[in-house]
């Protein structure tokens, strides 16, 4: 028995630093934020208490609710487009590109991943802006006479996000595809399935766990991001993170910001529950 006890003591000892860190700087702050979300503002002072007013406001005040709706809409759009664009890219790299060039092809496909995140959104501004590359090119060829309003729109935000997440999803889907034995497809075809049937009934279901995991990560990162909508979407329409930053920055309303953060987390938790069956977070 004493061996087990000693082993267990050792286990707790090794676990302690990570566990304490997570408790002190993740769980505790979350609880503090949760408590703060039930406080309210009187003038510029925070009054502690149990007041669900912030949550009621988040869902009834149109300017607050709109931000939540915008965030969910943008995130869902981005996730769907990114998956649809990344899947064929990953498949082409896995199946069409010769084996010895695959790593290079993959590395190239995600190379812009290594630019600074802030700078990446900024460079899309150079592409999409009023005087940007696309407008200059289109006007130069005479296709349009007036510059298109591309920047400071939801489209710009979506493009900026899709650019980032296509790279991420290509990696996760590729990792999934490359593990599939070619014999699955062979077996399906051997049993009379055509290309399309093989894809729909065999290949796609087998990559589903990888796709769902990648899509979930996309969802989490996208819905919580402040930079991309702030730089590319501007203030034309607000997303939830932008609203949270506004509440904190302009009005110093930490309770409201906390409540909105809890709402944001709830949305992520819902998404997690929706796809938890397929998620393999520890295998990322």
């Amino acid at each position: 028995m004493s061996l087990h006890a000693a082993e267990r003591k050792l286990g707790w000892g090794l676990l302690a630093p990570a566990l304490l860190w997570t408790l002190a700087f993740f769980v505790l702050p979350f609880l503090a934020m949760l408590a703060l979300s039930f406080a309210h503002m009187e003038g510029r002072a925070i009054v502690q208490g149990f007041d669900p007013g912030n949550y009621i406001r988040a869902f009834t005040d149109w300017s607050q609710l709109k931000a939540l709706i915008n965030s969910v809409e943008i995130t869902v759009t981005v996730t769907v487009i990114s998956v649809v664009l990344a899947w064929p890219l990953a498949a082409i790299i896995a199946w069409r590109v010769p084996q010895r060039f695959q790593r290079l092809a993959l590395l190239m496909a995600v190379l812009p991943f290594w630019t600074s995140y802030v700078v990446r959104s900024y460079s899309w501004l150079l592409v999409l802006g009023k005087n940007g590359v696309i407008n200059k090119a289109l006007m130069g060829t005479g296709l349009i006479s007036e510059p298109l309003a591309l920047a400071s729109t939801r489209t710009a935000t979506v493009i900026g996000f899709v650019h980032f997440f296509v790279m991420l999803l290509t990696l996760t889907i590729y990792a999934n595809l490359i593990q599939l034995s070619p014999n699955y497809a062979r077996a399906a075809q051997d049993l009379g399935a055509g290309d399309w049937a093989t894809f729909v009934h065999v290949i796609l279901p087998l990559t589903l766990p990888g796709v769902i995991t990648g899509a979930f990560v996309t969802f989490v990162l996208c819905i919580g991001d402040y930079i991309t909508p702030q730089i590319l979407g501007g203030n034309a329409e607000l997303t939830l993170p932008q609203l949270i930053m506004l509440q904190m920055g302009r009005s110093g309303n930490f309770p409201m910001a906390s409540a909105l953060s809890v709402v944001l987390m709830a949305v992520v938790t819902l998404a997690y529950a929706a796809c938890s069956r397929w998620l393999r977070l520890d295998r990322l």
Partner: peptide
């Protein structure tokens, strides 16, 4: 699950929680 949990939480929320604390 507890150790992996911060991965599923937006950086903004982690930052806000820490700021509050």
């Amino acid at each position: 699950g507890l150790l992996i949990a911060p991965m599923t939480v937006s950086y903004l929320i982690i930052a806000l929680g820490l700021l509050t604390t």
